[in-house]
Design a protein around this nucleic acid. Structure first.
Lengths: 147, 147
DNA sequence: CTCAATTAGTCAAGTAGCTTGACTACATGG
DNA sequence: CCATGTAGTCAAGCTACTTGACTAATTGAG
């Protein structure tokens, strides 16, 4: 039993590794060679709305300092802006720029490319079943940007 | 279509993240708090037989220097030994020690623990179908130790 | 109202795991 | 025999994280 479990765990990790690689390639081809997976995960939280650096930190499962550095990069590269909060001078709400939104669309297209390749191997129905199964075992917690 | 693809990609990554976390926890509980995922992947190649540092490097998708450092850690911590090759004085074949084999057994048990939790959510049959689907989409190439 | 405690965020220094470049020792084929 | 290739290590540098210290703004108890 244990050996099959290892096999399943390895399949999950190898598949995740492949997904990351394919999306990274797709992003580079679409003109976004400088965004890492962690940036993408930050985008998810930021586009969800009303996000601060601390929210991004919690979402990524890293310290606020690490999130602060990451956001700083995104600001410098023109993906994100810091919006001062009139009700609390400490807070600086984050928002995507037009370039940031273009980047998320490119990420969606890259993910779709990756999944399209899977249809050749397990069919559209297989992809559908895989999606359902994974949705039920995948957690809600923070998405750590590294192993 | 793209949005569902993103959902699937996120599920894969979140699941992989969870697997890593659960196995890491399981290893720490079993008395192996100092082995990282990359070490585990190295164990896979080493236990497969006749592995050199270069083989480990290729298996992990890293440089030979990185693999050399990683193997050095495993040797220092008593998981691996370097066996000189009588036919080629340059080569030093790697082999697991008794502790190294105990570590792989602990990893298998930890993986089994993680999978056991999934059965509560998608059932034994779900796990079986998930295993089959993932085996067909997961690649054979090197298993990079980071995102 | 005041001030101690909390919160948002940054600055600075240290660490871990990778990289590239240079090198030694051994092996191989003309 | 020697030029070329291979296994492996040493050393230095980079990057993304960490911990610790700090400023500035807000909150709440008395």
């Amino acid at each position: 039993m244990d050996v099959e479990a290892v096999q399943l765990a390895m399949s999950v990790l190898a598949t995740a590794s492949r997904v990351i690689e394919q999306i990274q390639d797709g992003m580079a081809r679409r003109g976004f060679p400088d965004v890492r997976p962690a940036h993408g995960f930050a985008f998810v939280r930021i586009s969800h709305g009303d996000a601060t650096v601390l929210d991004v930190a919690e979402h990524l499962g890293v310290t606020k300092q690490a999130a602060s550095q990451l956001v700083e990069q995104l600001v410098q590269r023109g993906y994100v802006t810091r919006v001062p909060d009139p009700a609390d001078a400490r807070r600086r709400t984050l928002a995507l720029t037009a370039r940031g939104r273009a980047c998320t669309r490119a990420a969606e297209a890259s993910a779709a490319d990756a999944v399209r390749g899977w249809q050749d191997e397990i069919g559209a129905d297989g992809v559908r079943r895989l999606t359902r199964l994974l949705a039920r075992v995948s957690p809600d917690g923070p998405l750590r940007p590294a192993w």
